[in-house]
Nucleic acid binder design. Structure first.
Length: 809
RNA sequence: GCCCGGGUGGCGGAAUUGGUAGACGCGACGGACUUAAAAUCCGUUAUUCGAAAGGAUGUGGGGGUUCGAGUCCCCCCCCGGGCACCA
């Protein structure tokens, strides 16, 4: 054996795995299937450390499962539609397709260079017409099932990107891509009806397998279910009514005013009957001018205008004033509220500012329930509430009052969600064309399935003005209606790329199917994904949309399960210089350079070793030296081990063989629990033990030598597959990938001696190397003989076998 | 404000779930090899008192339970992430 030449070894094995189709699952198998999936990446061109961490973890799981006898499906593909390719095209004139595919090739090389095993025959790319044909197909099915619709809506418009953004893509009023301020604009847009599944998306989180609690919590927050009541208020002396939603029906008697959002549909009627119409019009105009962010950030000072009109409280007939204020949002609930300043802080602030009456209707037994300084939102009993006095808030009284509303046909119980429908239209070129046709006669008609895919047209200029660049192609726009054959116009918007990624994990099971998006039998056999691995940045958007897609496809009979991802693992971010690595900050660490200087195995080990994989962590350049050193020492140790004189007796090897067995035990446990950092440290410890053994030994038995080299290679294989494959091949002539993970020998786990801790009153006083399995009396004797202790002086002795003895007194 | 995480040496982090706190690695310091450096190897490395043997303190802070607490209970502080005028 020579020096550890990682360059040579790594390229040799990467070639070997590829040429031998080392990972090739039997898609028709029904037994021991394991679908292991890493989130497919946007092809930015270069792998960054986040990818490295993601794919290293994924590859550890793939290889570990393979050696444990699983039929592993491990595919990889590309989330290859999206803005960067298009922006580059505007700048350089290179076609987005050319640009994208160059980057895919580059990134694929790097993924292979990391040593990750993927079944590349199953590769899919969102921009490939063989893929987006089926994205369009699914969209049409959604449309036909009334889960896709078009409507005029105030949308988030980024004037820098010239496109609309989903609510999820607006971060504190700014575009999450370019950071420009997002405006409100009214546009005719496509939506997917995710709100139909609000309840199921929420409840599914309780039934799903192993997902990080924080991801579940984030989705719960996002869906934002709240239960309460809805009832209508009548404007005095008119036949105008509007609905209000409240989660606190128990405070209904405390309503001292009502508020409409400035965008409320009753505005024109109110303007026509209010004596205050000029002021109202001014207020509506000024609210319109404020961006959503401005409105939200002005949390301290609430503004509003009195309509001079009154509404009647339906439970007690009390007349209260009607206001218009922009602290009431049009797109939550009904866009109108009953205001109970005594028990809601926002209403309280407003009432104080405008001198509106504040009534207390809930009282606690202690003085804490005063409403002198602020609203009282705690629990208590109802007061000033007529027949409902003395009921307990919030639940009991709410139930009774809701029942009253129902019985008197005033209102009803109601559940409201924060989750809105998913806006998927993008006025962009590099995305999946929405396959619909607008016919004057027939309306919105889907392209006939035989004509799919609706191909992206070739255009000269990718810049968008105020509509999608697709509109620049006359050839594309002008078509015939699939129903009546008359001239008709194509939809020119493309889809949000999150649509592409909402079903790719289904296509992987059947990637070459020319007739349907995927075969139901195969998908039902392989899904849900057994292990999904990706960054926490997708905790809400991608994961929620994919869950929605699966539920919708299930209801359209394309599959028979409800959740796409049984188990989810979110790896933490790798930072550098205290913040997220990004090209604009110039604080990136390029993984590729480490392939050359340290090797993929050393990089993989360091990535795994640096921290628990779900934690965020700071990149430390010195750290990778440590794993490189470890691999060098490991290589040298195996070499020295192989040179030892072989003898028959294995008596002297017992201890090191037991250490190997202990490592089989601990590495297996840690891998099962995703504790890769401690799995690596187990192997480092074992390597140190091996160094010590080699320092003191000149000879070894054949069986011990084989046992050590064999098992230590297998244990290392999931994490550092190249070096371990090379060693295994050198010694046993076989491909490690076909070997079975070792069983723990439970009879040989415990060391024969341990360090007994002798405590007096709970404090450590002495330690002593001691045989395991001793009775208390034997240990007491040791303490007496060796440490001169007078046992009878103590009141109480606590003995935990093979651990500790504590003398109390 | 609400909901999740988390707080352990100079640093990243371990700790069999109540039983020797600081494994493993990085860094630092000392030594060997070398003309020298790198690489490699051997030591030391929580703080503090002590020449040493040895002692005291120590897991964000304060209380408690226990023979024994990083781990369990109560109160408080700080940091990271998510949501937020959501009625």
């Amino acid at each position: 054996m020579n020096e550890y030449n990682f360059q040579k070894i790594e390229s040799k094995w990467q070639k070997h795995w590829s040429e031998n189709n080392s990972i090739k699952c039997d898609i028709n198998s029904k037994e021991k299937n394991f679908y292991n999936l890493c989130m497919y990446p946007y092809p930015s061109g270069d792998l960054h450390m986040g990818h490295i961490r993601n794919y290293t973890i994924g590859d550890v799981i793939t290889r570990y499962k393979m050696l444990n006898g699983y039929n592993v499906l491990s595919p990889m593909g590309w989330d290859s539609f999206g803005l960067p390719a298009e922006n580059a095209a505007i700048k350089t004139g290179i076609h987005p397709k050319t640009f994208t595919e160059e980057r895919i090739n580059n990134m694929k090389d790097q993924i292979i260079r990391l040593g990750s095993l993927y079944e590349w025959d199953r590769e899919v790319a969102a921009h490939d017409k063989d893929y987006y044909k089926w994205t369009q197909f699914i969209f049409i099915k959604l449309f036909k099932n009334k889960l896709a619709y078009k409507k005029d809506a105030p949308v988030n418009w980024c004037d820098s990107c010239k496109t609309v953004l989903a609510n999820e893509q607006v971060i504190e009023g700014n575009c999450d891509r370019c950071d420009a301020v997002v405006d409100q604009k009214n546009l005719n847009q496509w939506f997917l009806k995710i709100s139909d599944y609000s309840d199921e998306l929420l409840e599914g989180l309780d039934e799903i397998g192993d997902w990080p609690e924080n991801v579940k919590a984030m989705q719960q927050n996002w869906i934002g279910k709240s239960e309460g009541a809805e009832f209508s208020l009548n404007i005095e002396n008119t036949d105008l009514t509007f609905d209000v939603f409240t989660t606190r029906p128990d405070t209904l008697f405390g309503m001292t005013f009502a508020v409409l959002s400035p965008e409320h549909q009753l505005m024109s009627e109110i303007l026509s009957i209010s004596s205050n119409s000029t002021e109202i019009q001014n207020y509506i105009d000024s609210a319109k001018k404020k961006s959503e962010f401005e409105r939200m950030s002005l949390t301290k000072e609430k503004t509003g205008v009195d309509t001079g009109l009154f509404v009647i409280n339906p439970v007690n007939g009390k007349k209260v004033s009607l206001w218009i204020a922009d602290y009431v949002l049009i797109n939550y609930g009904t866009g109108a509220i009953m205001a109970v300043p005594g028990h809601d802080q926002r209403d309280y602030d407003f009432a104080k500012k405008y001198g509106i009456e504040i009534i207390q209707v809930i009282s606690d037994k202690n003085e804490k329930s005063s409403i002198e300084q602020e609203a009282f939102v705690g629990e208590g009993i109802l007061i000033n509430s007529g027949e409902f006095d003395n009921l307990e808030s919030h639940t009991e009284a709410s139930n009774k009052i809701v029942k009253f509303l129902k019985d008197n046909k005033i209102g009803t119980s109601k559940t409201t969600f924060r989750l809105r429908d998913w806006l998927i239209s993008r006025q962009r070129y590099w995305g999946c064309p929405i396959p619909l046709i607008d016919c004057d006669k027939c309306g919105m008609i889907p392209e006939s399935e035989d004509n799919l895919p609706v191909l992206l047209p070739e255009i000269d200029d990718y810049k968008n003005t105020n509509e999608s660049p697709l509109a620049k192609s006359e050839e594309f726009i002008n078509t015939n209606c699939p129903e009546c054959g008359n001239k008709a116009i194509r939809e020119t918007d493309t889809m949000d790329t999150f649509v592409d990624s909402s079903w790719y994990f289904l296509r992987f099971v059947d990637p070459k199917n020319q007739d349907i998006p995927f075969d139901a039998k195969k998908v039902n056999n392989w899904l849900p994904v057994d292990q999904y691995i990706g960054g926490v940045e997708h905790a809400i958007l991608h994961l929620l949309y994919a869950r929605f897609f699966v539920k919708a496809l299930r209801d359209m009979n394309y599959l028979n399960f409800s959740e796409p991802f049984q188990n989810l693992f979110s790896q933490g971010m790798i930072n550098f210089g205290g913040s997220k690595m990004s090209k604009s900050k110039g604080n990136t660490v390029d993984p590729e350079s480490y392939f050359a200087t340290h090797g993929a195995d050393a990089l993989r080990l360091y990535i795994l070793f640096m921290a628990p994989p779900s934690d965020g962590v700071e990149w430390n350049d010195g750290g990778i030296e440590g794993t490189k050193r470890f691999l060098n020492k490991f290589w040298e140790n195996i070499k020295r081990l192989s040179y030892l004189k072989v003898i028959d007796s294995s008596v002297k090897d017992e201890s090191i063989v037991r250490k190997v067995n202990q490592s089989i035990n601990s590495v297996s446990k840690h891998l099962n629990k995703f504790e890769f950092n401690t799995a690596v440290s187990d192997l480092m410890k074992l390597n140190n033990e091996l160094s010590d053994f080699l320092k003191n030994s000149q000879e070894i038995s054949k069986s011990s030598k084989d046992m050590i080299i064999k098992n230590i290679s297998i244990l290392l294989f999931p994490m550092a597959p190249h070096i371990s494959s090379e060693i295994y091949k050198n010694y046993f002539g076989e491909d490690l990938i076909n070997i079975t993970w070792p069983q723990v020998d439970n009879d040989n786990l415990k060391d024969p001696t341990y360090e007994l801790v002798i405590q007096i009153n709970g404090k450590k006083r002495f330690t002593r190397e001691t045989k395991i399995g001793l009775e208390q009396s034997e240990v007491e004797k040791i303490c007496k003989d060796d440490f001169d202790m007078n046992i009878s002086d103590f009141k109480k002795i606590i003995y935990i076998q093979d651990k500790i003895i504590n003398f109390v007194g």
